[in-house]
Design a protein around this nucleic acid. Sequence first.
DNA 1: CAGTATCCCCCCTGATACTG
DNA 2: CAGTATCAGGGGGGATACTG
Lengths: 147, 147
Amino acid sequence: MAKRVSLWNAGCPVARALDVIGDWWSLLIIRDAFDGVRRFNEFQAGLGIAKGMLATRLRGLVGKGVLDTAPASDGSAYREYVLTEKGRGLFLVIVALRQWGEDYLYRPGERRSSLVEARTDVPVGKLKLRSAKGRPLEWSDTRVTRC
Amino acid sequence: MAKRVSLWNAGCPVARALDVIGDWWSLLIIRDAFDGVRRFNEFQAGLGIAKGMLATRLRGLVGKGVLDTAPASDGSAYREYVLTEKGRGLFLVIVALRQWGEDYLYRPGERRSSLVEARTDVPVGKLKLRSAKGRPLEWSDTRVTRC
DNA sequence: CAGTATCCCCCCTGATACTG
DNA sequence: CAGTATCAGGGGGGATACTG
């Protein structure tokens, strides 16, 4: 979001990514978009966000190329908000957040949604970092180059 | 961060994760921690964050079990902030953000840091979602179960 | 339904000064 | 160096009313 201080010019892709979707609501809106939400009121009801804030956030995400507007699929006069390819690129960010939440933020037995293969309803596997050649990598096997 | 409205009780691990690290500064602090930053002033100088905010954020992250304090490794009287196992679990979130930033937020030729294998300096591979059996999965192959 | 327009409060955030 | 304290501002964010 346009904060007072923008990290856009940093040479760090993490900072630049957070500059775009690092505010409180954006990732939740995007999560809902991945779950099939398309209409203003659906977002509003699902998130409990104020309408004004939602309008601002949707406008911002469209402006940043994460969402796009499309004519309503049901023929009504209103537009819908759909993920662009850039927006769909955030899928793994959402998945990573989800898997971290599942691993560290729930106690056994607590009800929660889960990400499954659509055809079989089998939970998806855990994300894993690998080398360019496919060997599993831990954090300690990596470093960040100075830019 | 503790906002007015907490999503903690949602049955969605994504929402619960964002409730913990979804504010502007936390992920940047955590990114720096992954890059080896441990001291108050290092964080402060590197992030350009106000000291008061930094103190609040560090306290919050320690309280949430993402960071822990440890005696200074150089023998000085001050403590250091280090990632807990829970905090280290956020590695893939940072990596996912980084890879998205690299893919969609930089033009060819722009300087940026990059994540490489420490031993060889070869860039790591791209994260990929796979089924429980290891088959590559796209977003469209998945769905989120109602909780 | 899909927003826009206002009002208002509080907290984030920055700046500065102070302490061990 | 590693914070705490205090002050001041600006905008994030909620609530409500209004419009096409």
